[in-house]
Amino acid sequence: MAWVQELCPKSEFYGDAYDQFGLFGRDSKTVMAHCVHSDENEIRRMKENGVFIAHCPESNTNLSSGVAPIRQYLEEGMHVGLGSDVAAGSTENMFVAMRYAVQASKLRWRLKDKKLTQLTMAEVFYMATKGGGEFFGKVGSFEAGYEMDAVVLDDKRLIYPQEMNVEQRLERMIYLADEREVYAKYVAGEKVAD
Rank of each mutant, 00 (worst) to 15 (best):
K138R: 12
R169G: 01
L74G: 11
A97I: 01
E75G: 08
A122Q: 15
Q118F: 10
K112W: 08
Y73V: 11
T129A: 09
D149K: 06
V67I: 15
V86I: 15
V139S: 07
Y73W: 06
E163V: 11
S141A: 11
E167K: 03
L153M: 15
E147Q: 12
P69C: 10
G145Y: 05
V86Q: 06
A128D: 01
G131M: 11
A128M: 01
M121A: 15
D149G: 06
R169D: 00
A101R: 02
D113H: 05
S141R: 03
Q162T: 12
F136E: 06
E123T: 02
K106V: 13
V102G: 00
F136A: 13
L74V: 09
Y126V: 04
A122K: 15
E92H: 14
G83S: 12
M127W: 03
G145K: 05
R71E: 10
A150I: 02
V151R: 03
L107D: 03
G131V: 06
L111K: 13
W109C: 14
M98Y: 09
V151Y: 07
S90Y: 12
E171Y: 02
G137P: 05
L158W: 00
S141D: 06
W109M: 14
G81Y: 05
G133K: 07
M94G: 03
Y160P: 00
V152L: 15
K138L: 03
L107Q: 11
L111D: 15
T117M: 11
L119G: 10
V102C: 03
H79L: 13
E123Q: 15
P69N: 09
L63V: 11
L153I: 15
I159C: 05
E171F: 04
G81S: 08
